[in-house]
Amino acid sequence: MTVTGEPATIERAHGRSGELVLRRAGAHYEIISNGVFLMDTRNGESERLLVRAATAGLQPPVSLLIGGLGVGFSLAEAAALPGVAAVTVVEIEPAVIGWHATHLRPFSAEALDDPRVHVVNADLLDHLRGSSGRHDAICLDIDNGPEWTVTPANAGLYGDDGLALLTSRLTGHGVLAVWSAGAAPAFEARLRARFAEVETRPVPVPRGEPDVVYLARRPLASTRP
């Protein structure tokens, strides 16, 4: 059945950062945090590119860390790649994880049932600080971008200390990929000061400025942890 008119609220939940609302608009779903639109299931092209570009050229088996489950586009792309042997998804909100067992299950392509996938309910910074594991690719999609974070604490991920922490969790040939709902020049400059190779991939969207995927490879010797 097609739903018309205003989006309908499906569920409300108390999240780590306030109220989370799952809404349905026609065939699609939206996640709202404290009244602010976060994401929906309408496209996902840039989220899929985030994973494809990060893993392109890596020799299997690939270990991948995804920061943020969201509506599942990044995870679905990762699970579809045969060279990916292990995927760790860190998601701070229990409600978001729960919605992938019900309403959002088709959009993550049932990947939470994939034995290669391990979902961790935690703050990403806490997870990185508490784990010594290294990954061939780290994909960040927990904010609307380095300059538009969901919570003030997340800003620490995109500064010098956060980039040092992320670099320490990469293998020697690892790739850091960061999704942004627009260009973030100051963040790009910090990447270029730390990595020998930095690439930007703009992705056009129906309205507004393009999404941008930042790819960083080969940490400079002077910045290695």
Rank of each mutant, 00 (worst) to 15 (best):
G98N: 14
H100Y: 10
L104Y: 11
P106V: 13
F107S: 09
F107K: 12
F107E: 13
F107C: 11
A109R: 15
L112S: 08
D113R: 15
D113H: 13
R116M: 10
V117D: 07
V119L: 15
V119P: 00
N121E: 15
D123L: 06
L124A: 06
L124P: 01
L124M: 11
L124Q: 07
D126Y: 05
H127S: 05
R129G: 08
R129Q: 14
R129C: 09
G130T: 14
R134I: 10
R134L: 08
D136W: 04
A137N: 10
I138H: 10
D141N: 14
I142Y: 00
D143L: 08
D143M: 11
E147S: 13
W148K: 14
T149E: 03
V150G: 00
V150L: 15
T151A: 14
G156A: 09
G159M: 02
G159E: 09
G159T: 03
D160V: 07
D161E: 12
L163P: 01
L163D: 01
L163Q: 05
L165H: 03
L165D: 00
L166T: 04
S168Y: 02
L170G: 03
G172D: 12
G174K: 08
G174H: 03
V175M: 02
V175N: 00
V175C: 00
A181I: 01
G182V: 06
A186T: 12
E188T: 13
R192Y: 05
A193G: 12
A193M: 09
F195V: 12
V198C: 08
V198R: 10
E199F: 09
R201N: 07
P206T: 13
P206M: 07
L215G: 03
L215T: 10
